[in-house]
Simulated assay, not measured.
Amino acid sequence: MLTALSTKRLMRELNQLIKNPPSSHVRLLSHETLDKWKIQIIGADETLYADEKYILQFKFPNDYPLESPEVVFVGDCVPVHPHIYSNGHICLSILYQQWSPALTAEAVCISILSMLSSCTQKKPPKRDAIYVKRTKTASPKKTSWRFDDDNV
């Protein structure tokens, strides 16, 4: 059950995304419940991912924003990227150890869009198949991530 703080914060963020999306590359698709959203991101112009459409699923914990949301790519199309596994898990520090309650779902989307935009080569992460087999349907928040490669 969401806390009062979580409910108030999520309502504010949801209204902001609906009324004033951060860019034409980020758009709220649905919010089945207040704690589960789907957001479409479209690759930025003049990047490897230009005009490609992807869906991010956000699951917000009961104590959001003190704890980070679970964010994964869902659907038939997951970007081929050195920090995105084929099961949709994203290796991005702000989703785990570097999370701050000052961050929002909008900020996460912009960070992911930036991560895609700065990529110079479409290639899967090292040992993608092993990771996907090992994690199966587990939450990416159960993974012990290493953030030692920011040169993509």
Rank of each mutant, 00 (worst) to 15 (best):
K141M: 09
L56T: 07
D63E: 15
P21R: 04
T104I: 04
E46S: 13
F60P: 03
D148G: 15
K122A: 14
N20R: 12
S6C: 08
K136V: 03
T137F: 03
T120L: 15
K126Y: 11
Y85T: 07
K19C: 12
D149Q: 14
M1V: 13
I110F: 01
R12K: 15
S117D: 02
G43H: 01
C91V: 06
D35I: 10
D150P: 10
N20H: 11
V152R: 13
A44P: 08
K59L: 15
Q98N: 13
I55V: 13
L5Q: 13
A44D: 13
T3L: 02
D150T: 12
P125E: 08
E106S: 06
V74G: 00
A44N: 10
Q40Y: 00
N151P: 07
I41A: 03
L2A: 07
M115Y: 06
P125Q: 09
V74T: 08
C119T: 15
S114A: 11
W99G: 04
G88S: 06
C91H: 02
S68N: 10
G43I: 01
L17P: 00
D149I: 13
Q16T: 14
H25L: 04
L17Q: 08
I41P: 00
V78N: 03
G43Q: 00
Q98P: 00
H81Y: 09
P101F: 02
L17F: 05
R12N: 14
D148W: 14
I39Y: 00
E13Y: 01
T104N: 00
T7V: 13
T7S: 11
V72G: 04
Q97D: 06
M1C: 15
L113E: 02
P69A: 07
V71I: 09
Y49D: 09
I94G: 03
R127T: 07
V108S: 05
T3I: 04
S86F: 10
A107T: 08
S118N: 14
Y54L: 08
M115N: 09
T47L: 03
I42N: 06
A4H: 12
E32C: 07
A129R: 12
M1R: 14
D148R: 15
P82L: 05
P79F: 05
T47Q: 07
E32W: 06
F60R: 08
Q57S: 14
L29F: 04
W37Q: 00
D128F: 01
L66Y: 12
F73I: 02
P124F: 03
